[in-house]
Design a protein around this nucleic acid. Sequence first.
DNA 1: GTAAAGACTTGGAATAATATTG
DNA 2: CAATATTATTCCAAGTCTTTAC
Length: 821
Amino acid sequence: MSNSDQSYFDSEEEIQEQENNPELIKTNEIVEDSDSDSDSEDDVPISQRRTKLNSTTSSISDATLINDKINSHSSSSSDSDSDQPLSKRMPNNNSSQKILDPKKRKIKKESKTTATNESSDSEDDIALSKRRKTTPLKKVKKEIKTEIKKEIETEIKREIKREIKTEEPKKATKRTRVKKEEDDEKPSKKKKTTAKVKEEKVSKKKKKEEEEDEVFRWWDNEKEDDSIKWTTLEHQGPYFPPEYVSHGIKMKYKGEPIDLVPECEEVANFYAQVIGTDWGENPTFRKNFFKDFLKVIKKKQPNCPIKKFEDCDFTPLTEYFTEQKEKRKAMTKEEKEVIKKEKQEIEDKYGWALLDERKEKVGNFRIEPPGLFRGRGEHPKTGTLKYRVYPESVTINIGKNAKIPEPPEGHKWGKIIHDNTVTWLAMWKENVNDSFKYVWLAAGSSLKGQSDFKKFEKARELKKHIGKIREEYTLELKDKLMATRQRATALYFIDKLALRAGNEKGDDVADTVGCCSLRYEHVTLEPPNRVIFDFLGKDSIRYYNEVEVSKQVYKNIEIFKRAPKKEGDMLFDRLNTTILNKYLQKSMKGLTAKVFRTYNASYTFQEELKKTVKNSTMNEKLLAYNRANRQVAILCNHQRAVSKNHSDQLKRIQDKILTSKYQRYLVSKEMLELDPTLKKKKPELGRLSRGITKEFIKSYEEKELEKKKAKLERDNEKRKIDGKELLTLEDMEKAKRQPSMERLQKQYDTLSKRIKAQQVLLIDKDENKATALGTSKINYIDPRISAAWCYKYDVPIEKIFNKSLRNKFKWAVEVDENFVF
DNA sequence: GTAAAGACTTGGAATAATATTG
DNA sequence: CAATATTATTCCAAGTCTTTAC
C-alpha cells in the first residue's frame, strides 16, 4: 500500500503531531472543537438503529420495499401487481454497478435461482418432533449395525441388488432418502420404487440410526483446549494428477505447424483452452502466459522459433480440445461408467483419513494440476504458469506411528512431519504467489465442525458484549486522539455495514480493500449526512452503498479526508487490522473484526425469519426463508454476475404466466356462458388481464392450433393402422364434451394456483439475479437458527439444507425450536 | 514492533450431476 | 430420449488472523 500518507502522519500522539507537523494543525483543531458535538442518534437502541440504517440505505431499503410488496401480495393472493414491470420493483443496485464498474468482471454463463421447490405442501408423514428426537445412541454395537444393514438390504434388494452388494450403506441410505422425499412432497414424475410403504417406514428409523452410528458426536462433550488437534492420524497422502501425455496436435507459428516437446506443448495447451473466454482476451493474462511460455521454451526447446505472441496460432489445439469435449459428451453409458468407477476408486483410496481412529473424509486430496493462474480482478499475475507439483515439494503431516503413504513411483516426499497442533494432512508451496496450499479434511469432518461450532459460539458471545462495545465506540467517535477516533469510525462501519477487516496487501495482487484499508477515493460525502462507499472488495467484487450516517461519523470522515490527503492515501491512516483487533480483544476474549460479520449476519437472519407466516404454504415459507437469506447476502455483499440470459429466463416465466392467465380467462368465459349470473358474484370472471395483447392471443392460438394438428396427426396415424376413417379438426372439436360447472371451477382454481406459484417463482428469481445466497448460508448463518425455524414452521430440513449442508451441520440440527442465536 | 510465515475461513466460478422439458 | 435448465460439488483464489523471525 502507499506509504505516502505515512510521511505526514508519523507520530502517535495528536498533540505531538500538532507541534511537530504543521500540516496537521487543521485536523487537530477540528478534532478538538468537535468535542462538543453530541450524537443523539446513537442513543437509539441498537435494534432500532439497525432498521433505521436499513431504511436509509438505498439498496437495503429497496429490498425491504419489495419485501412488503411481496408479503402483501402473497397474503392477498391477488396477482395484479405482477403486471407491473419487474425492473421497477427490483433493487437496481447491481445494474448500476455493472455500468460504473471500472473493472470488467467476467460474465457468467448461467444463472442460478433459489431453490424454490415447486412441490406440493403436504407435510412429512412422520411428526417432526418425533423425527428430531430419534437421537441415535452414542455408539451402536457392531451386531446391531449388521442387523440394520441386513434389514435395509432385504428391503431394497429387489431394485438395487447390484449396488447394495458393492457399496457402503451410505448408498442405501441415499436411496431410501430419495424415496422418502418422493412420497413426502415431490409430485415428481419419477416413481422408481415399488417397495412397500410399510417397509419404507421401518427403514426410515433404521436408516437414521444407521446413518449416524459411525458419527463422532463431538458436540456432546466439548473440550476446552483445542490446541492439540489429534493424537493419531493416518492417510494416504494426496493424489497427483497424471503426467502429461502428448496428443501430437501441432500449433502453428507464422502459419506453419510447429513441433513442440511435450513440456512446451502442455503450456500451449493451457492457453489454447482459454481461447474464447475472457481470460484469453485479457492482456495481462496473455502477457504473463507468453512470458512463461517463452521461459519454458528456452529451457526445454531452445531452438524453437517461437518469439512473438502475435505469430502464434493456437487454434488447432483449441479445436482439438473442443473435439475432445464433444467426444466426452457423446460417450456411451458404459464408457462413462468406467470413468466413474475409476474416479470412485481414487476416492476410496485417497478420500479418507483416520483421525483418532475415526474415519473422516478428506476434502481436497487432489494436488492442484498445473495450469495458468486465474487471478481475479486486475491481478498482476493472472495468466502466470502454475507449475506441476511433485512429491518432492510436498510435506506430509501424519501420525508418528502411522504408515507413511507411498509416494508416486520414482519420487520421494519432500518432508514428513508429525505435527498434531495443525489439521492439515499435506502441504506444498505454490509458485505463483509463493503461498501455501494445504490438504484438509472435508467440511463435514469433526475438526471442521468443531471450529465451525466455535465460530458461531463466539459470535453468540459477542451478543453479550455488543451493547457495551457500541456504546464505547459511539463515544470514541468524538475522541481527541485521531487514532482512537479512526478506530471507532472503522468499527462503526464494520458493525453497521458488515465490512471486512481490510488487511494491507502487497502490490503484486489485485488492488482491493476492506474497512481498514479504505482509501480517500473509496468514500465520498454528500451533505448533509450521506456517505457513499464505492470500492472493490474481496475477489474484486464491487461494494457500492449509499448510507446515511450520524453527524459525528460524517464529520469524522470529513476530517479523515481533509487535505493534504488526496487520492491514494489511506482513509484510516492511524489504523490497521492489528490495532483494531488488539483493541477488540480487550472487550472480549478472541474477538476480532470478522466476528462482527458472523454476528450481524446471523442476527439479521434470525430477525428476518420472524416474518415467516405461520400457516402459509410450504412455498411461501421457503420464500420467506430465502428472503431472509437474501437480506443477509445483501448485507454481506455476496454477489454474482447476472447471467447473460437472465432476461430471457424471466420472459419465459412471464410468458408462462400470461398463458396460464389467458387459459383461465378462456375457462372463465365458458363458466359465464354456462351461468351468466356468475358475473355478478364474481366480477373478475371473463376479465382479461393486462399484458395479454392481441399479438399474444394470436400467437397463443397459433400454438394451440399447432398442438391440435399434431395430436390429430398422431391420432390419425393410429387410426390408419387400425383401419378406421380419418378425422378432421372439426371432428375433434365436436368430440369435446360440454364441461360441467364443477369441472370448470376446478380448472379455474388449478390455473389460479399455478399462476400464483409461477409469480412467486418469478419474483424470487428476479430478486436473486445478482445475489449469491450460498456463501452466507454456508459460512455466516448459524445453522441452528435454520434448524429451529424448520421445527417451528414444520418444514423438513431437506428443503433448506442439501445433503452436504446437512452433513456439514449435523452438529446443529439437534437444537429444539426455541433455539435463539 | 514489524514483516514474513503459516494456517485456516471465505468466496465466486467452473464443472459435474440431476431434473425438467420439448 | 436428447436438449436444456437447475442444483450440487469441486476448484482454487483471496481473504483473516495468529505465530514466528528478526
